[in-house]
Design a protein around this nucleic acid. Structure first.
Length: 940
RNA sequence: GGGCGAAUAGCUCAGCUGGUCAGAGCACCUGCCUUACACGCAGGGUGUCGGGGGUUCGAGUCCCUCUUCGCCCA
């Protein structure tokens, strides 16, 4: 059989009669397409504002807003993970009965998209400046028009049940209006300002960046110790330490700590800047760290943010010597500072040259290797240059306040919990946000300056005349906004804000769960919360689910550049979308990274495909055995007609539903805020997946389906009961699994007896234990002993017989006999003799085994089994085996009795714990007695 | 430099508010084409829960400390 699942191939015989209408494998390729189209045609994923309780309807709204991928993005496995999580949640809530809206869309991704188009231009030998701003923007629009949004189509292929009719785009006219409104409102509230300060500048992208966009990368650099001689006495001087000697051309002072005795005598004197001889004052400032380097610091206010603060405190000049492109030059207030031979040199070339010159002049004292962090542009990885410039800033402290309170008081929770601390830590030290970018692709800053009177103001509509002097020589600010300045409005702009009467805004805001990766916690999540409070007066969602990262087997992040990525569409093609989804969900603990092996897709995705096949075959069995005749609804079955197995599986279903619900929910805080006890509860997708899988595979398929086979073979009332239970169980199992594996479950559900065209599993009701009306029919002995119910006694016996068969290497086909000692438990085995026979190949007899060698077992339920295995059982071995078992039991019992004998324990432990231990002791000692009697009898 | 977190079976990880919690999946070994499924079925085991100390009647589970690793921020 080929590696690839080629469902079109004829069944390869395993003896089963071929059923051309029901092959042994699920043809996921054709089913996925067909079902996607059917769902879409039925408009199952369209949310209606009017149906929500907020609009007077019946349903609770449940909203998830997609973290908009970059408009130029191509689906990678990280998107796969992110969107699968969202889809699982939205399908779950849709089935529960919420008016579920998953709103999709894309981000224009200012700097990223501009870079893509610039690269295309570069292949034509052009820069954006060659084509000009207007033409460049047009070209980018055309590019986005043509290639953008591909990722949304790809999301459909993995089963994303988003409301595509509401697809949003951050640069659309509607959302652009929101961006403009937001800026103007902040401007009106005095929360934006034009700041003259040192910002992060990318010399390649030629734009400023926010603090968050300038990422730290650890690197090993050099620490240069340079001597600055006193201007009036070259025999004395100060040695400073710097990692960036090229910036010394812009030095305006040397600073030492005010309490530093070593340098006290220098403060107030003047030193000569090496190379140029410019006179610099020696100043004292507590910012200087005495222990770092030499304890003396050169001050370069225009090229270092900390030095800028020092410069401001001391009223120092701020010459700029590095150009936007990163070249040395006398850019601003720097006349006479840059020697001619250095002008125009790249900053790193200049560094080398300057170090040579310092060395030649004797000013270079020493060079040390030095591990430090250097900021890089998050889009192009270029080393960022701190540069003095004018930018627009948002005053963040007032915005941060409610966002901080939101998490502290439980209006918003972050999962996993550790991120709450990170979030709080960041917000408590919040810095103002540089929102202007010197790019062309983005929302233009809506500020116009009058050429006549110089008045500048922000405008909702493009102004035609100056509001102050009436002049018409108005010029718009050339900058555009940080792309995140539109993203932070996503939860409100996509729903219609600033139109506060928007139906969607009223019905679906605030949203519910935000699903994203922690790397954009500050970029995006925190700012959305701030925007929610700033513009709507409340948090935009109540839960933030921060999932892990997809990594390879060496724990490296999957990325194109490393070549260790996995193409989700390739996985869909080879294993099916359900397999992809299953693997991602079941392997994902809360916030835990998902490890996948790009070199061995089978290892990661075969289990998902195998599970889909397993489901398919359970369905195949049911369809072929149960037939198409109408099936009695479970509620109409007389409870008295249920067998032990029926009652057992009914109980297991309730347990599975309860486990799935407990793993997933609660979906929302009960009273607007998360009480401490609920803050970290729910969204355990792996636990949900495992509970559902275990029910369907290990309980329904492994036991119930086997148990029911004999009953299906004979016509009569009991067959109808079995059919009713079986179909109900499978139906419910499919529902539990549908959010994770939508395709195979829907395909099977459509084929269940009673399925009607136009009805979809995707729109069916989520299972509920509350709606079961057979609860009174539950196993009469349920929970009476640790084995659980009466059916568990049967399972226990079958397990024991199987183990003994294996132990004594009984030929698989050989039927043996099992004797069960008289006692009330034995009757259960006799009742289920057919099942024991089918699953353990053994007859059941009551009474003592005939004389001769036999294998023995004492079950937790107290049942004693004897399997006469003449010629196979070695008495010595059997004795040894039983003694080992007895010894193990005795050891545990000893520890247990020790505990119970300890008065400290019985007196201080909670009563129910003590009682539990006592019950355990009774059960274990009974079993130990039985075992030891058995050993005495057999082994003397 | 500041903050946060993790160390549990060969691998990836569960183990919530301390009392069968020493588990799951994968991998591995043995035997089976037992007529839904070999993408399957049955059976099989391995861990001083990173080291040390403490709290407790009782600790992977709480506290301290050390070691190693990771993340975020400056």
């Amino acid at each position: 059989m080929s590696q690839l699942n080629d469902a079109a191939a004829p069944d390869e015989g395993t003896g089963a009669a071929a059923h051309p209408e029901f092959p042994t494998h699920f043809d996921f390729r054709s089913a996925e397409t067909t079902l996607s189209e059917a769902w879409e045609a039925a408009r199952l994923f369209r949310a209606e504002a009017a149906r929500t309780t907020r609009a007077g309807g019946e349903r609770d709204p449940f909203t998830i807003l997609i973290p908009p991928p970059n408009v130029t993005a191509v689906l990678h496995v990280g998107h796969g993970l992110n969107n699968t999580v969202q889809d699982v949640l939205i399908r779950w809530r849709r089935m529960v009965g919420d008016e579920a809206l998953w709103l999709p869309g894309t981000d224009h991704a200012g700097i990223a998209t501009q870079n893509v188009v610039e690269k295309i231009l570069a292949t034509e030998g052009k820069t954006r400046f060659d084509v000009g701003r207007e033409a460049f923007v047009e070209r980018t629009e055309a590019f986005v028009e043509e290639t953008g949004g591909l990722i949304l189509k790809q999301l459909r292929a993995i089963g994303a049940s988003a409301d595509w009719s509401r697809t949003a785009y951050t640069f659309s006219p509607a959302l652009s209006r929101a961006v403009r409104e937001a800026f103007v409102r902040l401007h009106e509230r005095g929360l934006v300002y034009r700041g003259h300060r040192v910002i992060h500048w990318c010399p390649r992208c030629l734009t400023s960046l926010s603090d968050e966009e300038a990422e730290f990368h650890d690197s090993v650099g050099k620490l240069y110790h340079i001597r600055y001689a006193l201007a009036d006495d070259a025999s004395q001087g100060l040695t400073i330490a710097t990692t960036r000697p090229e910036t010394l051309l812009a030095d305006v002072a040397v600073a030492v700590h005010p309490d530093d005795a070593r340098y006290a005598a220098f403060v107030g004197r003047t030193v000569a800047l090496p190379l140029t001889g410019i006179a610099l004052p020696v100043i004292a400032d507590a910012y200087v760290e005495r222990a770092f380097g030499t304890g003396a610091l050169k001050i370069t206010p225009a090229h270092d943010a900390n030095d800028f603060d020092v410069g401001k405190r001391h009223g120092l000049a701020m010459p700029v010597v590095i150009s936007p492109e990163g070249r040395m030059g006398e850019i601003v207030d720097a006349a006479g500072r840059v020697p001619a031979e250095l002008r125009g040199l790249d900053r790193f070339d200049a560094r080398r040259r300057i170090v040579q010159q310092l060395e030649a002049s004797g000013a270079l004292v020493k060079v040390e290797t030095h591990a430090h962090s250097v900021r890089h542009c998050y889009r192009c990885d270029t080393v960022v240059e701190p540069r003095l410039s004018d930018q627009w800033f948002v005053r963040m402290a007032p915005l941060a306040e409610p966002a901080l309170a939101a998490v502290k008081d439980g209006a918003v929770r972050l999962l996993p919990e550790k991120w709450e601390k990170v979030y709080i830590n960041w917000l408590e030290g919040i810095r103002d946000w540089n929102i202007s970018r010197q790019l062309w692709w983005g929302h233009r800053v809506p500020v116009w300056t009058c050429g006549d009177c110089g008045h500048a103001d922000a405008h909702r509509e493009d102004p035609t005349a100056c509001g102050t002097c009436g002049g018409t020589k108005l010029e718009q600010d050339p900058d555009v906004f940080d792309t995140w300045f539109s993203s932070w409005l996503w939860p409100i702009s996509t729903l219609g804000w600033p139109d506060e009467e928007s139906e969607d805004l009223k019905a679906f805001f605030p949203s519910d769960v935000l699903v994203t990766a922690p790397d954009i916690l500050f970029f995006w999540v925190a700012r959305m919360i701030m925007a929610g409070y700033a513009f709507m007066g409340r948090a935009p969602f109540h839960s933030v689910y921060l999932h892990g990262t997809v990594r390879d087997m060496k724990h490296r992040k999957m990325s194109k550049s490393l070549g260790n990525g996995i193409d989700p569409l390739d996985v869909v093609e080879r294993y099916g979308a359900d397999a992809l989804r299953w693997t991602l969900i079941q392997g994902m603990g809360l916030g835990v990274d998902v490890m996948l092996d790009p070199d061995d897709l089978d290892k990661s995705f075969a289990p998902g495909r195998n599970f889909a096949t397993k489901l398919w075959n359970i369905g195949r069995f049911i369809l072929l055995q149960v037939g198409e005749d109408p099936v009695t609804p479970l509620a109409q079955v007389d409870a008295a007609a249920f067998t032990l197995a029926d009652r057992w599986i009914l109980g297991r279903l309730d347990a599975a539903i309860a486990e799935c619900d407990a793993a997933l929910g609660p979906a929302r805080p009960r009273a607007g805020h998360w009480p401490p006890a609920d803050r970290q509860v729910g969204l355990r997708l792996d636990a949900y997946a495992e509970a559902a899988r275990r029910f369907v595979w290990n309980e329904l398929a492994d036991w119930y389906v086997e148990a029911v086979k004999a009953r299906l073979a004979e016509r009569g009332a009991d067959r109808e009961v079995a059919r009713a239970v079986l179909v109900h169980m499978f139906d419910q199992g499919l529902r539990l699994l549908h959010p994770i594996m939508p395709f195979v479950t829907e395909a099977l559900w459509q084929r269940l007896p009673g399925a009607t065209p136009g009805r979809f599993l995707a729109a069916s009701r989520w299972p509920s234990t509350a709606r079961t009306d057979w609860r009174g029919a539950r196993d009469s002995r349920g929970g009476a002993h640790t084995g659980g119910s009466e059916f568990d006694v049967v399972r226990e016996a079958i397990d024991a017989i199987r183990r003994l068969r294996s132990e004594y290497a009984v030929t698989p086909g050989q039927t043996i006999r099992t004797y069960v000692a008289k006692g009330d438990g034995g009757a259960v085995l006799v009742e289920n003799a057919a099942l024991v026979h089918r699953l353990a190949r053994s007859e059941v007899h009551v009474g003592a085994a005939p004389a001769g060698a036999a294998a023995h077992a004492v079950l937790p339920s107290g049942l004693e089994l004897a399997l006469p295995l003449e010629g196979m059982v070695d008495l010595e071995k059997e004795c040894a085996r039983l003694r080992v078992e007895l010894a193990g039991l005795a050891r545990q019992l000893g520890a247990l009795r020790g505990r119970l004998a300890n008065e400290q324990f019985t007196a201080r432990a909670p009563a129910e714990v003590v009682e539990g231990e006592r019950a355990k002791e009774r059960e274990w000692s009974a079993r130990a007695e039985q075992l030891s009697a058995k050993v005495a009898e057999l082994c003397g």
